[in-house]
């Protein structure tokens, strides 16, 4: 029983992290239909910039967070404006931006190593350890869940009550109709690339505080974000959240009685099952 409670707690904490990644990746994917693999290496950049400011230079953590978010947003917008948008304008098949994104990922990952050096990086932070009955968690875990909830609330308000938020929902539903009613879809694309990248930087800082940063952390991040979105249903932000939590819970509770030898396979198994049973994901939007 003790184990189940701990695993449940772990599942919620990690689920929050994956859900945040799913939201970031999903926002970009649903709105622009671009499979932005470089999301992962931008995530890594966000982590290293935050490390540089708060770890290396010793500035307070919120400054590291701000720096990471700003750099990530800049890189996200730059990848749209500099790479994907020109390809879009030429009317190429969707496969081309995907390949371009892979190339961008490699470039950015190597850049991180060149600029910040390779090798694990950590940020010293005062963390406290807490109990919930027999289960343990740290203050970073709490932050992961809290920041996810905060992001959810803000995103909800943004999407439902602001003009650009509604524009995002429109584009997610039908990009051409969005153009028809007068939405400048290029501007909205820039917005979601900025937002999605900002979310990845928040997740990246928390992971750096929790586990440390490494030059290849981005791959796991974009993979989990991608799986969360596919499992939850493309185009649905609620789906991305559900997908993320499903992944987090399966990775922990799913291994309750199964050997942890299967951990890396579990995410793939969930993905395959989803594709087989519900190809449109948990919350699929009605598509024309």
């Amino acid at each position: 029983m003790d184990l189940v409670i701990q695993l449940l707690l772990n599942g919620i904490v990690n689920g929050s992290h994956y859900a945040l990644l799913g939201l970031g990746f999903g926002l970009i994917f649903a709105t622009t239909r671009i499979v932005h693999f470089a999301f992962g290496s931008i995530f890594t950049f966000g982590a290293y910039v935050a490390w540089f400011v708060s770890g290396y230079m010793g500035a307070p953590i919120f400054l590291g967070l701000a720096a990471g978010v700003v750099v990530a947003m800049g890189l996200g917008v730059a990848s749209y404006v500099g790479l994907y948008q020109p390809l879009e304008r030429r009317g190429v098949s969707p496969l081309i931006p995907l390949i371009a994104s892979l190339g961008l990922t490699i470039v950015l990952e190597n850049l991180v190593g060149i600029i910040f050096g390779t090798g694990a990086r950590t940020i010293d932070a005062e963390t406290s350890i807490h109990f919930l009955g027999p289960a343990f968690f740290t203050s970073i875990h709490v932050w992961q869940v809290v920041s996810f909830l905060l992001v959810c609330v803000l995103l909800y308000l943004f999407v439902n009550y602001t003009r650009y938020g509604k524009a995002i929902m429109a584009m997610t539903d039908d990009p051409e109709m969005a153009r028809v009613i007068g939405i400048d879809t290029a501007r909205v694309s820039i917005l979601v690339f900025a937002l999605g990248s900002a979310l990845s930087a928040i997740a990246a800082l928390l992971v750096t505080l929790k586990d440390g940063a490494s030059t290849h952390m981005g791959f796991t991040a974009v993979f989990m974000g991608f799986v969360a979105v596919i499992v939850g249903g493309v185009g649905s932000l609620r789906g991305a959240i559900a997908g993320g939590f499903l992944l987090g819970l399966v990775e922990s509770l799913g291994l309750w009685k199964i050997s942890t030898e299967w951990q890396s396979s579990i995410a793939f198994i969930v993905l395959f099952l989803m594709i087989l049973l519900r190809p449109h994901g948990l919350f699929s939007l009605a598509r024309r």
Partner: peptide, 21 residues
């Protein structure tokens, strides 16, 4: 307890929980 850790693993919470228990 015998818990496996992948190279490059980022989430080993489950393994740690099982070890503790």
């Amino acid at each position: 307890a015998t818990e496996f850790v992948e190279l490059g693993a980022s989430n080993i919470d489950t393994q740690v929980a099982k070890v503790r228990v």
